[in-house]
Computed example of a mutant assay.
Amino acid sequence: GGFGGGFGGSSRRSYVEPGRDLRYQVEITLEEAATGVEKTIKYKRNGKCPSCNGSGAEAGSSMKTCPKCNGRGYVEVTQRTILGNMVSQSECSECHGKGEIPEKKCKTCGGTGITKETVEKKIKIPAGIEDGQKLRLDGMGEASENGGPNGDLYIVIRVKDHAIFERRGMDIYCEIPIKFTTAALGGEVEIPTLKGKKNMKIPAGTQTGKMFRMRGEGIQALRGSMVGDEIIQVVVETPIDLNENQQKLLRAFEESLKDKNYKKHKTWLDKVKSFFK
Protein backbone atom coordinates (compact mmCIF):
# COMPACT_ATOMS: atom_id res chain seq x y z
CA GLY A 1 0.00 0.00 0.00
CA GLY A 2 1.01 3.59 0.58
CA PHE A 3 2.42 5.73 -2.22
CA GLY A 4 4.30 3.00 -4.10
CA GLY A 5 1.02 1.11 -4.64
CA GLY A 6 0.01 2.42 -8.06
CA PHE A 7 -3.23 1.05 -9.44
CA GLY A 8 -4.96 -2.24 -8.69
CA GLY A 9 -3.13 -2.75 -5.40
CA SER A 10 0.07 -3.93 -7.13
CA SER A 11 3.20 -2.63 -5.50
CA ARG A 12 5.09 -2.48 -8.82
CA ARG A 13 5.91 0.90 -10.37
CA SER A 14 3.29 2.02 -12.89
CA TYR A 15 5.84 4.03 -14.94
CA VAL A 16 8.06 2.18 -17.35
CA GLU A 17 11.12 3.88 -18.74
CA PRO A 18 10.98 4.23 -22.54
CA GLY A 19 14.03 3.41 -24.67
CA ARG A 20 16.69 6.01 -25.43
CA ASP A 21 16.15 8.63 -28.13
CA LEU A 22 18.62 8.63 -31.02
CA ARG A 23 19.97 11.41 -33.27
CA TYR A 24 20.84 11.04 -36.93
CA GLN A 25 22.24 13.78 -39.19
CA VAL A 26 21.16 14.11 -42.83
CA GLU A 27 22.88 16.48 -45.25
CA ILE A 28 20.85 17.92 -48.12
CA THR A 29 21.41 20.50 -50.86
CA LEU A 30 19.63 23.87 -51.09
CA GLU A 31 17.74 22.54 -54.14
CA GLU A 32 16.49 19.58 -52.07
CA ALA A 33 15.48 21.92 -49.23
CA ALA A 34 13.50 24.02 -51.74
CA THR A 35 11.50 21.13 -53.23
CA GLY A 36 11.57 18.46 -50.48
CA VAL A 37 13.30 15.12 -50.92
CA GLU A 38 13.14 11.45 -49.93
CA LYS A 39 16.26 9.94 -48.33
CA THR A 40 17.12 6.44 -47.16
CA ILE A 41 18.75 6.34 -43.75
CA LYS A 42 20.57 3.39 -42.17
CA TYR A 43 21.52 3.21 -38.48
CA LYS A 44 22.25 0.75 -35.67
CA ARG A 45 20.17 0.59 -32.50
CA ASN A 46 19.30 -1.60 -29.54
CA GLY A 47 16.20 -3.41 -30.76
CA LYS A 48 13.75 -5.87 -29.28
CA CYS A 49 15.26 -9.37 -29.27
CA PRO A 50 13.47 -11.38 -32.00
CA SER A 51 13.97 -14.75 -30.21
CA CYS A 52 12.07 -13.81 -27.03
CA ASN A 53 10.13 -10.79 -28.38
CA GLY A 54 11.82 -8.59 -25.79
CA SER A 55 10.76 -10.60 -22.72
CA GLY A 56 14.26 -11.95 -21.99
CA ALA A 57 12.85 -15.44 -21.33
CA GLU A 58 13.84 -18.60 -23.23
CA ALA A 59 10.91 -19.92 -25.30
CA GLY A 60 8.61 -22.08 -23.13
CA SER A 61 9.99 -20.76 -19.83
CA SER A 62 7.97 -18.44 -17.65
CA MET A 63 8.72 -15.29 -15.66
CA LYS A 64 9.27 -15.27 -11.89
CA THR A 65 9.11 -12.49 -9.29
CA CYS A 66 12.42 -10.65 -9.07
CA PRO A 67 14.11 -11.70 -5.80
CA LYS A 68 16.14 -8.50 -5.50
CA CYS A 69 13.16 -6.10 -5.29
CA ASN A 70 10.39 -8.61 -4.40
CA GLY A 71 8.51 -7.69 -7.58
CA ARG A 72 8.34 -3.96 -6.83
CA GLY A 73 10.63 -2.91 -9.71
CA TYR A 74 12.58 -0.56 -7.46
CA VAL A 75 14.86 -0.77 -4.45
CA GLU A 76 15.04 1.64 -1.54
CA VAL A 77 18.35 3.27 -0.75
CA THR A 78 18.88 4.89 2.66
CA GLN A 79 21.32 7.80 2.82
CA ARG A 80 22.53 9.57 5.91
CA THR A 81 22.25 13.35 5.65
CA ILE A 82 22.41 16.25 8.12
CA LEU A 83 18.60 16.12 8.25
CA GLY A 84 18.62 12.48 9.27
CA ASN A 85 18.12 9.36 7.17
CA MET A 86 16.69 9.97 3.67
CA VAL A 87 15.10 7.12 1.77
CA SER A 88 15.13 7.29 -2.03
CA GLN A 89 14.01 4.80 -4.66
CA SER A 90 16.04 3.66 -7.65
CA GLU A 91 15.27 1.23 -10.44
CA CYS A 92 16.10 -2.37 -9.62
CA SER A 93 19.25 -3.30 -11.57
CA GLU A 94 18.24 -6.97 -11.77
CA CYS A 95 14.85 -6.62 -13.51
CA HIS A 96 15.21 -3.03 -14.86
CA GLY A 97 11.95 -2.01 -13.21
CA LYS A 98 9.85 -4.89 -14.56
CA GLY A 99 9.44 -6.59 -11.18
CA GLU A 100 9.99 -9.98 -12.76
CA ILE A 101 12.84 -11.87 -14.34
CA PRO A 102 12.85 -14.92 -16.64
CA GLU A 103 13.27 -18.36 -15.04
CA LYS A 104 15.49 -19.28 -17.98
CA LYS A 105 17.32 -16.43 -19.73
CA CYS A 106 17.00 -16.18 -23.52
CA LYS A 107 20.25 -17.42 -25.12
CA THR A 108 20.18 -14.80 -27.90
CA CYS A 109 20.09 -11.73 -25.66
CA GLY A 110 21.25 -13.14 -22.30
CA GLY A 111 17.94 -12.25 -20.66
CA THR A 112 18.10 -8.52 -21.46
CA GLY A 113 15.38 -8.69 -24.14
CA ILE A 114 17.57 -6.49 -26.38
CA THR A 115 19.84 -7.15 -29.37
CA LYS A 116 21.74 -4.87 -31.76
CA GLU A 117 20.00 -4.35 -35.09
CA THR A 118 20.44 -2.29 -38.25
CA VAL A 119 17.43 -0.29 -39.39
CA GLU A 120 16.97 1.03 -42.92
CA LYS A 121 14.14 3.48 -43.51
CA LYS A 122 12.95 5.91 -46.17
CA ILE A 123 12.18 9.35 -44.79
CA LYS A 124 10.42 12.31 -46.39
CA ILE A 125 12.10 15.69 -45.86
CA PRO A 126 9.53 18.45 -46.46
CA ALA A 127 10.09 21.45 -48.76
CA GLY A 128 11.14 24.62 -46.93
CA ILE A 129 13.12 22.89 -44.17
CA GLU A 130 15.99 24.96 -42.74
CA ASP A 131 19.48 24.08 -41.60
CA GLY A 132 19.48 22.77 -38.01
CA GLN A 133 15.78 21.86 -37.92
CA LYS A 134 14.81 18.43 -36.57
CA LEU A 135 12.27 15.83 -37.67
CA ARG A 136 10.99 13.40 -35.03
CA LEU A 137 10.18 9.79 -35.90
CA ASP A 138 8.11 8.28 -33.07
CA GLY A 139 9.27 4.91 -31.77
CA MET A 140 12.25 4.66 -34.12
CA GLY A 141 14.77 5.01 -31.26
CA GLU A 142 16.14 2.29 -28.98
CA ALA A 143 14.09 -0.49 -27.37
CA SER A 144 13.26 -0.14 -23.68
CA GLU A 145 14.98 -2.42 -21.17
CA ASN A 146 11.81 -2.91 -19.14
CA GLY A 147 9.08 -3.49 -21.69
CA GLY A 148 8.32 0.21 -22.17
CA PRO A 149 7.89 1.92 -25.55
CA ASN A 150 10.82 2.56 -27.90
CA GLY A 151 12.50 5.96 -27.80
CA ASP A 152 12.24 8.37 -30.75
CA LEU A 153 14.63 9.13 -33.57
CA TYR A 154 15.52 12.77 -34.20
CA ILE A 155 16.69 13.58 -37.72
CA VAL A 156 18.87 16.71 -37.69
CA ILE A 157 18.89 18.47 -41.08
CA ARG A 158 22.06 20.07 -42.42
CA VAL A 159 21.65 22.19 -45.58
CA LYS A 160 24.95 22.47 -47.47
CA ASP A 161 26.28 25.89 -48.45
CA HIS A 162 25.48 26.73 -52.08
CA ALA A 163 28.06 27.88 -54.64
CA ILE A 164 25.79 30.64 -56.04
CA PHE A 165 22.88 31.32 -53.69
CA GLU A 166 22.61 32.51 -50.12
CA ARG A 167 19.40 31.65 -48.33
CA ARG A 168 17.54 34.35 -46.39
CA GLY A 169 14.46 32.69 -44.94
CA MET A 170 12.19 31.91 -47.90
CA ASP A 171 14.18 34.13 -50.29
CA ILE A 172 17.43 33.33 -52.04
CA TYR A 173 20.02 36.00 -52.76
CA CYS A 174 22.49 36.10 -55.65
CA GLU A 175 25.13 38.62 -56.74
CA ILE A 176 25.73 38.90 -60.50
CA PRO A 177 28.49 40.84 -62.29
CA ILE A 178 27.36 42.67 -65.45
CA LYS A 179 29.41 44.48 -68.11
CA PHE A 180 29.46 48.24 -67.81
CA THR A 181 28.15 48.53 -71.39
CA THR A 182 25.13 46.36 -70.45
CA ALA A 183 24.56 48.59 -67.43
CA ALA A 184 24.76 51.74 -69.60
CA LEU A 185 22.84 50.55 -72.68
CA GLY A 186 20.56 47.94 -71.11
CA GLY A 187 20.23 44.37 -72.30
CA GLU A 188 19.43 40.83 -71.22
CA VAL A 189 21.46 38.69 -68.83
CA GLU A 190 21.19 34.99 -68.04
CA ILE A 191 20.23 34.36 -64.42
CA PRO A 192 20.61 31.06 -62.55
CA THR A 193 17.55 29.94 -60.54
CA LEU A 194 16.96 26.83 -58.44
CA LYS A 195 14.89 25.43 -61.33
CA GLY A 196 17.29 26.33 -64.17
CA LYS A 197 18.35 29.33 -66.25
CA LYS A 198 16.17 32.37 -66.95
CA ASN A 199 16.71 35.61 -68.86
CA MET A 200 16.32 38.94 -67.11
CA LYS A 201 16.09 42.44 -68.62
CA ILE A 202 18.56 45.05 -67.42
CA PRO A 203 17.26 48.59 -68.06
CA ALA A 204 19.60 51.21 -69.57
CA GLY A 205 21.39 53.29 -66.94
CA THR A 206 21.42 50.53 -64.28
CA GLN A 207 23.71 51.42 -61.36
CA THR A 208 25.91 49.00 -59.44
CA GLY A 209 24.20 47.50 -56.37
CA LYS A 210 20.72 47.67 -57.95
CA MET A 211 18.42 44.91 -56.68
CA PHE A 212 16.03 42.97 -58.88
CA ARG A 213 13.38 40.58 -57.58
CA MET A 214 12.22 37.45 -59.41
CA ARG A 215 8.89 36.47 -57.87
CA GLY A 216 8.31 32.85 -56.87
CA GLU A 217 11.86 31.68 -57.58
CA GLY A 218 12.72 31.23 -53.89
CA ILE A 219 11.89 28.50 -51.39
CA GLN A 220 8.48 27.17 -50.42
CA ALA A 221 7.27 27.86 -46.88
CA LEU A 222 7.52 24.84 -44.55
CA ARG A 223 3.86 25.31 -43.67
CA GLY A 224 1.42 26.70 -46.21
CA SER A 225 1.78 27.31 -49.93
CA MET A 226 3.74 30.58 -50.02
CA VAL A 227 6.93 30.67 -52.07
CA GLY A 228 9.80 33.13 -51.60
CA ASP A 229 11.60 35.17 -54.27
CA GLU A 230 15.06 35.32 -55.78
CA ILE A 231 16.80 38.63 -55.15
CA ILE A 232 19.52 39.56 -57.62
CA GLN A 233 22.03 42.28 -56.91
CA VAL A 234 23.98 43.47 -59.94
CA VAL A 235 27.58 44.58 -59.68
CA VAL A 236 28.78 46.67 -62.62
CA GLU A 237 32.23 45.53 -63.73
CA THR A 238 34.74 48.04 -65.07
CA PRO A 239 36.85 46.65 -67.95
CA ILE A 240 40.56 46.15 -67.18
CA ASP A 241 43.76 45.68 -69.23
CA LEU A 242 42.69 48.08 -72.01
CA ASN A 243 45.10 48.44 -74.95
CA GLU A 244 46.05 51.87 -76.34
CA ASN A 245 43.33 51.91 -78.98
CA GLN A 246 40.63 50.95 -76.48
CA GLN A 247 41.83 53.66 -74.08
CA LYS A 248 41.71 56.25 -76.91
CA LEU A 249 38.15 55.23 -77.85
CA LEU A 250 37.04 55.41 -74.23
CA ARG A 251 38.62 58.86 -73.72
CA ALA A 252 36.90 60.18 -76.84
CA PHE A 253 33.62 58.75 -75.56
CA GLU A 254 34.19 60.26 -72.09
CA GLU A 255 34.86 63.72 -73.62
CA SER A 256 31.50 63.55 -75.41
CA LEU A 257 29.61 63.16 -72.09
CA LYS A 258 27.91 66.05 -70.27
CA ASP A 259 26.93 66.67 -66.64
CA LYS A 260 23.47 65.23 -67.29
CA ASN A 261 25.08 61.85 -68.11
CA TYR A 262 26.59 61.70 -64.62
CA LYS A 263 23.82 62.90 -62.26
CA LYS A 264 25.25 61.41 -59.04
CA HIS A 265 28.75 62.68 -59.78
CA LYS A 266 27.46 66.24 -60.45
CA THR A 267 25.34 66.26 -57.25
CA TRP A 268 28.30 64.99 -55.25
CA LEU A 269 30.64 67.68 -56.60
CA ASP A 270 28.09 70.38 -55.75
CA LYS A 271 27.79 69.01 -52.17
CA VAL A 272 31.56 69.00 -51.72
CA LYS A 273 31.85 72.58 -53.08
CA SER A 274 29.21 73.92 -50.65
CA PHE A 275 30.87 71.98 -47.79
CA PHE A 276 34.22 73.73 -48.33
CA LYS A 277 32.74 77.23 -48.76
Results as ranks from 00 to 15, higher is better:
R223W: 05
N245C: 06
Y74L: 05
R80H: 05
I178G: 06
K98D: 01
A57N: 08
K258Q: 11
I219M: 07
I155R: 00
K179T: 13
F180D: 07
K68C: 04
K124Q: 15
I41N: 06
E76I: 13
R167C: 09
R20H: 14
L135G: 10
I123Y: 01
L22H: 01
G196V: 15
E166F: 01
G54V: 10
C52G: 10
C174H: 12
Q233Y: 02
E38K: 09
I129M: 12
P18Q: 06
F276L: 10
V87M: 11
Y154S: 07
R80Y: 13
L22K: 06
N150I: 02
E17N: 09
E91N: 08
K264G: 05
E217D: 14
C174V: 12
E254G: 03
S55K: 10
C49F: 06
A184P: 02
K263R: 11
D131W: 00
T29Q: 07
G148E: 03
M200K: 06
T108P: 00
F7C: 02
L153R: 03
Y173Q: 02
G151W: 03
K122E: 15
S274A: 15
L250A: 15
K273H: 11
E17R: 14
V37W: 00
F276R: 14
T267G: 02
S62N: 10
L242P: 11
N199Y: 15
K104F: 08
E117F: 01
G84N: 09
K122N: 06
V234Y: 02
H265L: 15
G132S: 08
H265V: 10
I240T: 14
L269F: 06
K64E: 14
L242G: 12
S55C: 07
E190K: 14
I191Q: 06
G36P: 02
E175F: 08
Q133A: 08
F212D: 09
I172T: 05
K105N: 06
I114R: 07
A59C: 05
E166R: 15
T81P: 00
I41Y: 07
L135H: 00
A127T: 03
W268Q: 13
L22V: 04
D171R: 06
W268M: 15
M214L: 14
E130P: 02
V272E: 03
G139P: 04
Q133M: 09
G128A: 03
I114T: 09
Q89W: 10
I129L: 00
P177M: 05
G224D: 07
E188S: 12
N146R: 11
C52S: 11
V75L: 08
S61M: 13
L250C: 05
E188Q: 15
V75R: 12
I82F: 10
D259I: 09
